[in-house]
Design a protein around this nucleic acid. Structure first.
Lengths: 211, 211
DNA sequence: GATCAACTGTTTTTTATTTCACAATTTTTA
DNA sequence: TAAAAATTGTGAAATAAAAAACAGTTGATC
């Protein structure tokens, strides 16, 4: 199986977004131009595009329209994927709003919380249910993707509920480092904002390339 | 110069947070135990700790208290670092709240927006100024770290303002891929939430390790 | 229509990161 | 006190990722 790296998938996602912007201006783009737009290198771009089976034309480049649809065919789910989010505090709300209508093939269908003031309402147009209802809703709505933006100490329990209910992919925005057994076959993306901040602080004093 | 990788810095940050939790329970910890807590491996932990110059004791492990202070000495700025955030929409607000009091050596001293309803108020206890004032405030407060959570199309201009004002490190939460010249010597952390979502979608169908 | 210039797709090389493996060390046990 | 057991620190090997190099095409130019 020709497995594609996470890094490549991230870049393909970025290429597509940059290409959408360019589409208004022109028909074709060279690898070095796309590289510049995506903050990468020409070699890296060509390498990434190899996975698509779409080939450009020397001296002419890639037809933007075709390249976009090729990336879409590669990246996007065939049908619309339902997504849920657990924990509708500040970050959860921000993600709901951010997410809204951003990707046509990803549909945020429900959010969950334990705060009775939120349960039963709609937040950014998305219905909020009690956490207890999550397993049932996930099954009913055939949800494959779950986002966790709860408190740190609820993370583990929530992830276990998600996995038991059949979730295939988790994005964890809490700082609790989830540990999912390989045998579960669940994809995990850990976004550790605290680590990012501390890294920024560390390199603000250290990141001096030329001394 | 013995430069330490970004990955290692991220893990050290995580180790410290996990160790803080353990500190309540016990005095010493083995590399394989810390690895389990941080979702890593014993070899990786030992390798990362090598950079600290702190050595553990065979058959006894690392003294948690000492290890924490050693990581802190390594990671933390010597004095308190001021941080600013630009763009106080949903995500910006969430980051403000999230950040509040989380790291003692990092102090969020100001946020900026162009919305006149926000300018002049306090958001999560942090004063909000007009974006125009940013350069001056950054210089006055000797701010080294800037967070961007604006709209996508404002990102580039904001980063240029930041760099011109003397910022040393930028965390960019917008999807616009900033391109900072090496010569600027500014550290950049790009957090592309859209890419994370699309990655999660991609691997939810693909991430089947054993077929 | 032959030559040149510039770009693509892919192989090779280089660099970075992780894992392995093991001598050295320390505690525990006898 | 000697032997056994378990863990550390680190050099070496393996793996992963990025960059470089280059043959093969294609469009442009004369």
């Amino acid at each position: 199986m020709n497995t594609v790296s996470q890094r490549t998938i991230e870049r393909l996602s970025l290429y597509r977004r940059r290409l959408m912007v360019e589409l208004a201006d022109k028909d074709y783009i060279f690898s070095h131009q796309l590289a510049k737009l995506a903050n990468s290198t020409a070699a890296q771009v060509r390498r990434d595009l190899m996975h698509l089976g779409y080939t450009g034309v020397p001296r002419k480049g890639y037809k933007i329209k075709d390249l976009i649809s090729c990336i879409s065919k590669f990246l996007d789910p065939t049908h619309i994927e339902n997504v849920v989010i657990v924990g509708v505090g500040n970050l959860g709300k921000a993600l709901l709003t951010f997410f809204k209508g951003r990707r046509p093939k990803l549909s945020l269908v429900a959010c969950f919380d334990i705060d009775e003031n939120k349960v039963g309402t709609e937040i950014a147009g998305v219905p909020c249910y009690h956490l207890n209802e999550m397993p049932q809703r996930i099954k009913e709505l055939k949800v494959n993707i779950g986002i966790i933006s709860s408190t740190e100490n609820a993370t583990k329990a929530i992830s276990e509920m998600m996995i038991a209910a059949g979730i295939r992919s988790i994005i964890n925005f809490t700082c609790y480092p989830l540990n999912i057994a390989d045998s579960e076959n669940v994809f995990l993306e850990q976004i550790d904002i605290t680590a990012s901040f501390e890294k920024a602080a560390y390199f603000s004093k250290t990141h001096l390339k030329k001394l």
